[in-house]
């Protein structure tokens, strides 16, 4: 398993480089213009000068090379400087956004807290609700609990956040006045009261997002449990006299986790990626909002950087999932 992991890690480098190239070419090919959001009152000659100032006059391969150098060579230096107070990166040009002309990574760092609070928390909540629902639904297949669970999760999944978001706002903010719905990113948690405020402003976006996660994971959990509950080894375990609890929660669960692990590993990069629609509805302004804003403004350096970071996380978490398969089911061998 160790050699497998190491081999995969090494293989990940060319993979990621290739992915970054494909992303770059895709963005080059995509129609769009960083000047699209500049008002029409600005004449075309001025817009052309602004494009040149952004470096758009240079050929594509030069810009790609510059991005590679900035991202893989200069940004790590900035990180080192930040932690050790050194000055490797001084005077070197970082990956600069076309929208706000500031380093992309600074904005990413600025937006991580709210993304983690909201999207990360929704994922945790979603998983915590989904697993028990999935397990119990499968164990008591076609019981009232199972039917109700199926019904609610499927409706939850078929109704998109662009509807549930405004719905909870109208109910809980406008009608009942319980929660604020414009997320305050300047809020800092310092004491109990501010913590309570943080909870109140988080609860609606977290619930809206968790609904989707819950539906998805609980369905896979249930299906996988059902597959395993009828296996011979379950009968054997029961025949041995193991308690029902141990049979279900140890033997069956462990063997049913493979698809669930896959789904969770697929979802984790998305935490970092944020949730575009929900973030917008609640003005959370996390990384999802940053990405969609950059795409709409055709801010290529930002899009390229963020997309590449997702790519990295995707490759990384998929590797973790593969390693976990081997742990969950030792028969799986990769070499």
């Amino acid at each position: 398993m160790l050699t497998f992991t190491i081999r995969r890690l090494i293989l990940a480098i060319p993979t990621l480089l290739f992915i970054s190239l494909v992303i770059f070419l895709l963005l080059e090919l995509a129609p769009g213009d960083p000047m699209a959001q500049v008002p029409l009152t600005v004449p075309p000659e001025v817009k052309e000068k602004m494009r040149l100032a952004l470096g758009l006059g240079e050929p594509g391969y030069v810009r790609f090379w510059k991005w590679l150098v900035q991202f893989f060579w200069i940004e790590p230096q900035v990180l080192i400087d930040h932690y050790f107070g050194t000055a490797f990166s001084e005077g070197k040009l970082r990956v600069i956004s076309w929208q706000h002309r500031a380093p992309v990574m600074d904005v990413v760092v600025q937006r991580l807290p709210q993304t983690m609070w909201v999207v990360g928390m929704s994922y945790v909540v979603g998983i915590l609700i989904a697993l028990p629902i999935g397990i119990y639904s499968a164990y008591r297949q076609y019981s009232v609990f199972d039917q109700a669970g199926t019904f609610i999760t499927m409706i939850g999944y078929s109704i998109p956040p662009f509807f549930t978001g405004p719905l909870v706002i109208v109910i809980f903010s406008v009608q009942l006045g319980w929660f604020p719905f414009i997320y305050d990113t300047t809020h800092k948690v310092t004491d109990w009261d501010s913590f309570i405020y943080q909870l109140r402003q988080m609860i609606m976006p977290v619930m809206v997002l968790a609904l989707q996660t819950t539906a998805q994971i609980s369905r896979y959990m249930r299906a996988s449990m059902l597959d395993n509950l009828n296996q011979d080894y379950v009968r054997t375990a029961r025949a041995k006299g193991l308690s029902e609890r141990v049979v279900v929660l140890v033997h069956v669960l462990r063997n049913s986790m493979i698809p669930v692990v896959t789904v969770i590993a697929l979802g984790l990069p998305a935490i970092f990626g944020g949730a575009i629609i929900t973030e917008q509805i609640f003005s959370v302004n996390g990384i999802g909002a940053q990405l969609i804003g950059a795409i709409q403004a055709n801010d290529l350096p930002t899009v390229q950087t963020l997309t590449f970071m997702f790519a990295f996380l995707i490759v990384f978490f998929n590797l973790i999932a593969d390693v976990l398969y081997g742990i969950l089911d030792p028969r799986i061998r990769y070499d």
């Binding site: 293989l11 993979t15 290739f18 992915i19 494909v22 992303i23 895709l26 963005l27 090919l29 995509a30 129609p31 769009g32 697929l266 990069p269 990405l291 969609i292 795409i295 899009v303 997309t307 590449f308 997702f310 790519a311 995707i314 490759v315 998929n318």
Partner: peptide, 25 residues
């Protein structure tokens, strides 16, 4: 396994909106 899963990673990583714009174009 290797090539196909790397392909999957690639597709997972592609930003959807620009991809669609390119397809439309």
């Amino acid at each position: 396994d290797g090539p196909l899963m790397r392909l999957t990673d690639l597709f997972l990583a592609l930003p959807i909106l620009p991809l669609l714009l390119v397809m439309m174009l």
